[in-house]
Write a protein that binds this DNA or RNA. Structure first.
Lengths: 218, 218
DNA sequence: GTCTGGTATTCGGTATACCAGATACCTTGG
DNA sequence: CCAAGGTATCTGGTATACCGAATACCAGAC
């Protein structure tokens, strides 16, 4: 029963969740497509319960839209949703940066420096996949250093949406400028300057937003 | 089977969710208390499935903390959690106010004015319960007018936490000043001044935060 | 008396089965 | 040919039952 999912150390619901989310992010399921509990359960070789729980999580995280008793469809994520997404993201990233500037420990700052160095190396070597992933790690780490678990929990689900947005548009050219911006942000955090850190984070997200807007043909 | 819950027009999971959330907010369950699926299911006369789904929602909204396979306990919500809460709330309220200042329709503004008038009336009449509820409505409406559904979905779960925080500390004295601040915020929205609106929202939340800090003896 | 091993019990995770609301298609009468 | 009603079916909601992991408790040995 775990044949299609590999040996389960986590719950089946978790595995189904990850699997479905990945399919949505990767565009394997297109927006508007219906997802039927029984179908998915059968195809994955599990019962409906884990599928159901996974779908409820996905709904709350904005990947699915449920309609009354008609089941769930994959949520749209076009230019409009992207705008909403970036507006929220900008505010929360700014908050995270500001809090990190206040609360980051020296060890935390060193961690960020290491991450940034690795990212730069990956970007220069043209290892795109790794660069994107390390960039995400950098942001996650800042959120972690903010010391606000609620903020972390609220931002975590947004990562998936970002990945969904950028599943195609992974452009090498943006990697090195991004490293520069990350460096500036890191400097502000190291200098314990919350205002500057917040402003830089805002600007950074705004840049991504503009890029997305253009990439989406908005 | 719906004996204890009344005739269900919504799903049992929804009803159980509301019921449990209310018990937590009202302090009927104290922080740290274990909630056992089977017990709750039996006592409410439903099966474990709706209870389970309700608990998963409550966990994601921060009311419960689940431990590995040991089940869920009611989450702490002391001074520390309150600080984290207000930090996030401040950022999101500011964003909502700023967006509302940009996007609010005349009809929307009129709706806010009506709400505020009713709130003032209730506050002057000393109808505390109603005042608190109307204040919450005012904030919700601003979020609505922001035109950002993602922001709405992210803020909605925070309302419950706020209620949990203030379940005792409902002080009449704060109602009228709060109306003044709401009036200022409304004016900024009406004037289509996002920066001022955001600043006022921040200040307003900061006031609530200070009040909570004091009330919690922090 | 204490430590260790095993066993009983608790409780979450999952599967199966049943039920009810909703939809879509088909039939029948005008 | 079209409309209205009914029926088959699809699908989500819920109940029940089983399983296995984790814990707590007890017994026996040192």
């Amino acid at each position: 029963m775990t044949d299609t999912l590999g040996d389960a150390h986590q719950s089946l619901a978790d595995l189904v969740y990850v699997q479905l989310r990945e399919r949505i992010i990767e565009g394997e399921y297109s927006a508007g497509q219906r997802l039927v509990e029984r179908e998915l359960a059968d195809s994955m070789g599990v019962s409906r319960i884990p599928v159901r729980e996974a779908m409820q999580r996905l709904e709350r995280e904005g990947f699915l839209a449920v309609q009354a008793r008609r089941g769930a469809v994959v949520a749209d994520f076009g230019p409009e949703e992207a705008e909403h997404f970036f507006a929220v993201r900008e505010s929360l990233e700014a908050l995270a940066a500001s809090l990190a500037a206040r609360h980051a420990t020296p060890a935390g700052v060193r961690g960020l420096e290491r991450l940034l160095a690795r990212t730069r190396k990956a970007a220069e070597a043209g290892r795109l996949r790794e660069t994107v992933s390390l960039n995400a790690d950098f942001h996650r780490e800042i959120v972690e250093l903010s010391g606000n678990p609620l903020l972390r929990d609220m931002m975590a689900p947004l990562d998936g949406r970002l990945r969904r947005l950028f599943r195609l548009t992974s452009d090498v050219d943006t990697s090195l400028p991004m490293c520069t911006e990350h460096q500036q942000l890191l400097d502000a955090i190291k200098a314990r300057d919350p205002e500057t850190a917040a402003a830089l984070a805002r600007h950074h997200v705004a840049g991504t937003r503009a890029f997305a807007r253009q990439a989406l043909g908005g």
